[in-house]
Design a protein around this nucleic acid. Sequence first.
RNA 1: UCCCAUUUAGUCUAGGUGGUUCAGGAUACCCCGCUUUCACCGGGGAGACACGGGUUCGAGUCCCGUAGUGGGAACCA
Length: 494
Amino acid sequence: MSVRVRFAPSPTGFLHIGGLRTALYNYLFARHHKGTFVLRIEDTDQSRYVSDAEQDIIESLEWAGIQIDEGPHKPSSFGPYRQSERKERYHKFAQQLIEQDHAYYAFDTTEEIEEMRERLKKSGNPSPKYDSITRQSMKNSLTLSQDQVQEKLQQGDEYVIRLKVPRRDTVKFKDEIRGIVSFDTAGLDDQVLLKSDGMPTYHLANVVDDHTMEITHVIRGEEWLSSAPKHMLLYKAFGWEPPTMAHLPLIMSPSGGKLSKRKAETEGIPVNTKEYRFGYYEPEALINFLAFLGWNPGDDSEVHNMSSLCEKFTLDRVSKGGAVFNYKKLMWYNEYYVHHHRTIEDLLPQIQQMFSASGLKANDATFLKMVVTLLHERVSKVDEFVPMGRFFYEAPKDYNEKALKKWSDQSAVLVKSFIGRLIEIAEQEFTAVAIKHALEATVDAESVGFGKVMMPVRIALSGQSFGPDLFPAMELIGKTECLSRMQTAVGRLG
RNA sequence: UCCCAUUUAGUCUAGGUGGUUCAGGAUACCCCGCUUUCACCGGGGAGACACGGGUUCGAGUCCCGUAGUGGGAACCA
């Protein structure tokens, strides 16, 4: 049987970075086995529905290089792919469970359930729930007569359908990552399967859909491990073969706990895939980083593109413990991909667009190409080209604080001396080589080290204490502009 | 509080079937080198098997406890 996996996000907001990793693992698993990767939208909670979310999910996956084989925008025979559009199926199956005594109608109001919880808490039950014991004293089709139930249904009373969890039983199943896990049904509640608004809960919907969509492997976050026994109970009740289960370790925040939106923000970690998309991150770097957050190929290799990851990925190499999101490691990957996998040619259009967006006229393609070449190896994310390359297009408006500390008392004198040499050079001969000779002459004449002259010149030209190779940079900027900036600096800094 | 999972350096991790290539790699950090600066690059350094029992001639590796961490305990997914 061919492998079919699904990524089943809830459209309640932008695609979370943890969701992206879950999608990635599913995708890698699918591709490794030449199977199918399905996107299913779990929009059963109408109160939390966000209309742009689905589009964001699809675009984000696409940006990351995760190709969806089937989904709401790519239908096939297993559709529809939005749970809201599969409503009737859930009703039918819920009905079936009732008929087979695996589920029942419950008419209790939220107030009544709350009351029950309060009552049990007072009598010493720390975590009261609607279960095999308490259901006997509630309003449901197990305690009411058949006539009463029929009457209530007919007069349109609100109801839910609950799973009838067996009283004393042990649910055991094999998780591909964790091995055998077992749960006592005494710890489970009679999970609501069909809500009073007619929508299924996640639990019913995911079981019905995974089965009818012929999903072979359920690969999802560890937060679902606790409800997995309910799902196994459902498969059993339906008489269906459950798919293979694999619960992934969670991505943790550096300060501990699941990497939530709020936590991530306070720790400076972008949490929505969207932020990476529009933040000029390299998708391959993010993917490589995410793949290694909870998985590794078993050798000492660190860099893998998507196809290599597809080839190497297996569930038995996924680790069990939560993995802390390390932003610096991500940046290392990003830098690596910028340096090794992006050529100057491929960077040019993007850089030009960025320069233009920040008001710099980067129209000269040859000039821009030189700028990008000079900057390429010292940039770790492509948007850094702008602040680093700005001085190629305009004189610094002010001087960086750190840079100013390197402007010494003798700097002005040395820069002036250098200016004297540069003036001698003809405009058309103002080349990196010529400039270097001029500097050497200056250094000789003044009996100082290279740096004593270079640093002040750099500051004068760029306003900063670091940056690309200075001689070619000066050639690009041109004689007139260089001299003007140096004179300005001498005048302003003394 | 209950249930489940999990636990190798700051972080991500390698360590099928227990025995002087078992404590390795990467990142981060520190130092040195290269260099006009910053980075890149090259070299080096410090840093870990949660704790306690057991099984065994021998355990990071198996078993049991304890602790820490995380998840769950909804008509949310």
